[in-house]
Write a protein that binds this DNA or RNA. Sequence first.
RNA 1: GUGGAUGUAGCUCAGUUGGUUAGAGUACCGGAUUGUGGUUCCGAGGGUCGAGGGUUCGAAUCCCUUCUUCCACCCCA
Length: 448
Amino acid sequence: MKPSIPKGTRDFSPELMVKRNFIFETIKSVFKLYGYMPLETPAMENLSTLLGKYGDEGDKLLFKILNSGDFLSSANSEDMTSSSKLTNKISEKGLRYDLTVPFARYVVMNRNDIVFPFKRYQMQPVWRADRPQKGRYREFYQCDVDVIGTKSLLNETELLFMINDVFKLLGINVIIKINNRKILSGIASYIGFEDKLVDITVAIDKMEKVGFDNVVSELLGKGITQEAVDKLSPILTLSGSNTEKLDKLKMILKNSTEGLAGIEEVETILRYYSVASASSFSSLELDLTLARGLNYYTGAIIEVKAADVAIGSICGGGRYDNLTSIFGLPDVSGVGISFGAERIFDVMTELKLFPNDNNQTTRVLFLNLGEKEVAYCMPAVQKLRHDGVNVELYPDCAKFKKQMDYANKREIPFVVIAGAEEVAQSKVAIKNMINGEQTLIDIDKINL
RNA sequence: GUGGAUGUAGCUCAGUUGGUUAGAGUACCGGAUUGUGGUUCCGAGGGUCGAGGGUUCGAAUCCCUUCUUCCACCCCA
């Protein structure tokens, strides 16, 4: 049998894991700086928790888990007539689709024990039965950070600070775009199609990708009138600075209390952001075509793009006012963002941003040249390790060439050689594998 | 879910109108070199040609089915 792994899944080799961990650790360190605490939830949730939360499309993309034991015993012949009926009888669990819904479920379940505002981060894999493509997998990691139980716009601002910090540490230049669902809602009612908000947002979100003309034809296809599109066009093509755009928008949406509320939120966030703004901060751009498909957003919408690589968004999120209400806990507002680990990895690979020496790999290899020689080296090996140096001792008394070859292939920068000659002098030879230089020093004076 | 490509050695790929024992580079293993890796030279191993079925005297090559990977939609990170 030829071994294989399921479609859209990947193994991560040690070399890849060192790089992936660098990203995860960096992101995690920033989360901690802002007072967020880790949370993990099970890979599988009850299907009742998952179903209906991501729309019809999302339901189709859920991985469902077959019940244990004689799963067919609870199904009757009528259930066999349709897949959906049968599914309900033979499957009651599914793999998590994202980290936000399990988070909401957790908050509702533990509402009496949680101290609000509740700040948590979560970095775990999620699964979608999507058709794999370049950069799209059936199993992938999300790095979510959310705060729930506070309506303060300070939270949005701090999320923007965290975005700055993370990408600064990773060395990626980014453009941060923000928008507000209330503004979009105001625009929808301004053009007379308040009920088509979802269709409108889905369409205009594609502006950058497919262009203005295609967005217009999609809108017309969804039943938006030409007249409404004509009112919408000048808004979507507003240009100028953030304040110029907001000023124009205020005029246009002057009759929409919701739209004006959205504008005020954006202004507040921009003001907070500029107060702390340093020259190193990424630019913050109001983008009225930014919508993001997720329809549970109710306020701010945030998206981050890499400035030097065309790869789509590498981080995104927003505010949601009613996420926990589906589980019976209304009026708890939250805001959060998610870092796309896989895409960040691709960006860093393309820009060659991974550090070479990140203290993850072996720094020194002691050759194994026999029982006596091993006993001679062992104290020095342990001392180095306890001093924080990553050290390996070759496990077998293999041929010299083979051991050197191992060091070379593993890209270990130093090799310590202690054979009969060195033992006799209480010394060791240290070979620098990069420039080939070799020096002889006392065994108790190894310093690397 | 829809449409289009793809699959030959661990990897990257040749392989003529269907014709004898399917090749190359690279990697791997051994040797040149019994205490010195990365360069060089020599040698060896490695394949159910994605899988299954069909056409044919004969299939890597033609046909059908299926799986994989990739691309474009839908959607999304």
